[in-house]
């Protein structure tokens, strides 16, 4: 087990920074054939999207866990990314696939993000506002919502055009081996904007984590902050899902590890640790699988496998505060 009692926080972060730098360098250079002028930009965009995804997933998961006061809920377990895909499919369903092809992808993405904020806001505010919801009920409801969203998307995809839906699916729904780089710039902008907003509330996260009653008692405007955090989470999940598609357990994996390694509950520390861990896992994992084992799309499968086991272990140890 990773324990860093002896290390000071800054050392932990420095080590992780070094590790990410190493994995990025390895990913950029090893096995490169042909001119650097081609390889560097090609791999660079891949790296950039992975860094963005890692950042988005890590931050959204940690914040979501803070808001929901537990360490086992994550946006993807609660069906956020399935909701994004549903919205995406729903838009195509309404506009028609021909219309989508003509639309500017950035505009489309913006529409999806706005819809995502509205719907996730309504849905999850409603779920979390209940007085005594048991945690397990919430997770189960989230998972089933995920199934519902996925089935609904599948349903609409069939109705859009049963013959071409596979082609459509390939074009519209990204995965780790098929990163949708056309959205990179707008994604980066979205992430930057949310980070700026999120940064302003940095000091309240630690208080928020103490629970609703305590934080109200300490003078935090709980309802408003939770709403803002949910909006941030919605944007970040949209970004990561648009770039690489849904990754159910990655957030859980990174967040649990981050709390272990950081050995602290301060968000100023946990957030960067989680982000760096996410980058190391994604870039390093992709590098190892792709360059060493030559398994090019296995990363999300491996993540689901390991993440599922972590989740079960958390349940078995009763760590579901």
């Amino acid at each position: 087990m990773l324990k860093s009692r002896g290390l000071r926080p800054i050392q932990v972060i420095l080590i992780l920074v070094a590790l990410s730098a190493v994995s990025i360098t390895l990913f950029m250079t090893v096995g490169a054939k042909g001119s650097w002028g081609f390889v560097l930009p090609f791999r660079g965009t891949k790296i950039l999207s992975m860094v963005l995804v890692g950042y988005a997933i890590a931050v959204s998961t940690v914040l979501f866990q803070t808001v929901s006061h537990n360490r086992i809920l994550t946006p993807s377990i609660m069906g956020f990314d399935a909701l994004y895909i549903l919205i995406q499919t729903g838009l195509i369903f309404l506009i028609g696939s021909g219309g989508v092809a003509m639309l500017d992808p950035c505009l489309l993405f913006a529409c999806q993000v706005v819809l995502m904020i509205v719907f996730s806001g309504i849905l999850y505010r409603w779920l979390f506002s209940g007085s005594s919801r048991s945690l397990h009920l919430l997770i189960l409801v989230g998972i089933v919502f995920g199934v519902l969203f996925r089935s609904l998307s599948g349903f609409m995809q069939r109705v859009i055009d049963p013959n071409e839906f596979v082609v459509l699916q390939d074009r519209l729904f990204a995965s780790f081996n098929n990163v949708d780089t056309s959205l990179l710039a707008v994604s980066a902008a979205a992430v930057l904007a949310t980070s700026l907003v999120g940064w302003r509330f940095m000091h309240t996260y630690d208080v928020l984590a103490l629970g609703r009653e305590t934080s109200i008692n300490l003078g935090v405007n709980h309802t408003r902050t939770v709403t803002i955090v949910l909006v941030l989470v919605a944007v970040l999940v949209s970004v990561s899902t648009a770039l690489v598609g849904p990754v159910t357990f990655f957030g859980l994996l990174v967040a649990s590890l981050a709390y272990q390694i950081a050995g602290s509950h301060k968000h100023a520390l946990v957030l960067p640790v989680a982000t760096l861990l996410a980058i190391v896992c994604l870039v390093g994992g992709q590098f190892v699988l792709e360059r060493i084992f030559a398994f090019d799309t296995a990363l999300s499968i491996v993540i689901d496998f390991v993440g599922g086991i972590v989740f079960l272990a958390l349940l078995i140890r009763g760590n579901t505060r």
Binding site: L148, R150, G154, F155, R158, N163
Partner: peptide
Amino acid sequence: YEIPIGTVMGV
């Protein structure tokens, strides 16, 4: 066309 039962049942 027909929508597979798994999808309908899923919804």
